[in-house]
Design a binder for these strands. Structure first.
Length: 290
DNA sequence: AAAATGTCCAACCGCCTATGA
DNA sequence: GTCATAGGCGGTTGGACATTT
């Protein structure tokens, strides 16, 4: 007998979240922090299951989330990491690894998301399924194995391992060419760096693509390069905003929070910020108006 | 203008692991 | 060691929106 669903209680609401529910959840989390998710709905006055609250918060409401489509650099990074995560073993083991990774360690998306600050695993997974998969197929690349689809036309490839395809010494070129087939995220055969939509993206991509230790760390429980936690919100040094951490800048976050004023920003529990944080917010608001 | 089709993504689902009793 | 539970994960779905016919 299977496990009982966690939300089979009568009266538990499903479906899209309303602005009012969002407001309640944000207010509760900002005031009390993330605690026992099971208790959150009751304490926050929501008719949702805890799991639904956690998902809503994690995938949509967290202030440190970037909004909008993935940049080309981010997309390229996702492809690169996906290829490497699926190709960290000798070829003979690939099938086994693909299967076991699905069964035993289904953490690709979360691992990848951990390297993309402000992005969620759900977002990356969706983007992969809707955009990247199609791009790779269009270019004749198997999105699962990252190998050319029509191998019979390229018999010499059968002897090359995935590791060969991804030489350690030329990681910058990893996604530019795959046995002659360009698998860049764009139709333009540019390098990942050139694909970057911003210098910050370039730095992010380069630093990760060039760091084999980083890729190894994806297979161990190592903290991400950037701690995505926002629990300890620190007022930023204005000179350091939008730096090369890949984080959304404070200003971007401010924009998000500002957007929340549609609901009434104080209703979001922003009073939990101390005076210094509010001061920084006010400063940015002034700058926005200029 | 209306219907059909395609695309996107938020949310749900079921399974797994970690943890504590 | 066993069991119950919470949290976390990837897969999948369904509805809203966009595009095409």
């Amino acid at each position: 007998m299977g496990r009982q669903p966690c939300c089979d209680k009568l009266g538990v609401k499903k479906g899209p979240w309303t602005a009012e529910e969002d407001k309640k959840l944000i207010n509760f989390i900002l005031t009390n922090g993330q605690c026992c998710w099971r208790a959150v709905p009751k304490l926050a006055g929501l008719r949702r299951c805890g799991k639904s609250c956690r998902l809503r918060w994690t995938n949509y409401l967290r202030p440190d989330l970037k909004r909008g489509l993935l940049t080309e650099a981010e997309e390229q990074l996702v492809i690169d990491l996906h290829a490497r995560l699926g190709n960290r073993f000798p070829k003979d083991m690939i099938c086994l690894i693909v299967i076991t990774s699905q069964v035993l360690s289904n953490q690709w998306w979360s691992k990848i998301a951990a390297r993309l600050p402000g992005r969620t695993d759900n977002e990356i997974k969706n983007h992969w399924n809707t955009h990247i998969k199609k791009k790779l197929l269009k270019r004749g690349i198997d999105p699962v194995t990252h190998e050319p689809l029509h191998k019979e036309a390229r018999p010499e490839e059968s002897s090359s391992s995935h590791a060969d395809i991804l030489p350690e010494s030329s990681n910058n070129n990893v996604m530019q060419e795959n046995d002659g087939i360009v698998i860049n995220s764009d139709d333009n055969p540019r390098s990942p760096t050139e694909n970057s939509s911003s210098p910050e993206d370039s730095i992010l991509l380069d630093s990760i693509c060039n760091d084999e230790m980083l890729l190894n760390s994806l297979w161990v429980d190592e903290p991400p390069l950037v701690d995505a936690s926002w629990n300890n919100i620190i007022p930023p040094d204005p000179a350091n905003t939008n730096d090369d951490t890949g984080y959304p800048s404070w200003e971007e976050n401010y924009t998000w929070l500002s957007d929340c004023q549609d609901f009434g920003v104080h209703d979001f529990g922003l009073e939990c910020f101390d005076s210094m944080e509010l001061s920084a917010l006010s400063t940015l608001e002034m700058e926005h108006k200029h």
